[in-house]
Amino acid sequence: MPLLPVPVFAPGASTGRTPATLRTVLHRTSKDLRRRLAPRAPGAAVPHRTPAWRLWADLARGYLALALTLLPRPRPARTVTVFVASADPLGARPGGPAPY
């Protein structure tokens, strides 16, 4: 019996539905099986895992950054721009026009 067509982000859906093609599912399954069934040689390097303390430190850093966004920051100083205009035109010289 086929599943009923439901939108991916349906508000009434009881579980999240992620669209996946048959090709994607088969590819992931075969990759996982190869990884699990591959013979391991003695002394072979174990895949690198992130240490637990680093995961906790990253989580704490995220919460600290979130808490810092809630603290009030000082407002920037108010500035006043002053424009000064002279009474003489810009091209006027004290001795008259420039000689050629």
Rank of each mutant, 00 (worst) to 15 (best):
A52E: 15
L4A: 07
Y63A: 12
T79W: 01
P51S: 13
T81D: 13
R36M: 08
R36P: 01
P97V: 06
V80C: 13
A44I: 01
D32P: 01
L37Y: 01
G96R: 00
S30Q: 12
L4T: 06
R17H: 13
A52S: 13
L59D: 10
G96K: 00
P42G: 02
S86T: 08
L90Y: 06
L66C: 13
A67I: 05
T15G: 01
T79Y: 04
W53G: 10
L90G: 14
A77F: 04
P42D: 03
L70E: 09
P97D: 09
P39T: 12
A98K: 04
A45F: 00
A85S: 06
G91P: 01
A44R: 03
F9G: 04
P89T: 10
L64F: 03
P99C: 08
V80N: 11
A44D: 03
A67C: 14
L26W: 06
R28Q: 11
V25R: 15
A10I: 00
V82F: 09
R17F: 10
A60W: 11
T24L: 07
W56K: 13
P19I: 10
A85V: 12
A38D: 06
R28T: 05
L3C: 03
R73T: 15
S14M: 09
V6R: 07
H27N: 02
P47Y: 00
T15S: 03
R54G: 02
R54I: 05
T50P: 01
T29C: 06
S14R: 11
L55E: 15
L59C: 07
R93T: 09
K31F: 12
H48K: 05
G95L: 07
T81F: 06
L90E: 07
F83T: 14
G91T: 12
F9M: 05
P39M: 04
P72V: 04
V6Y: 06
P76Y: 07
H48M: 03
V82D: 00
R40N: 02
S14L: 09
A20K: 15
L90R: 05
R40C: 04
L55I: 11
A41S: 02
A87V: 14
A10D: 12
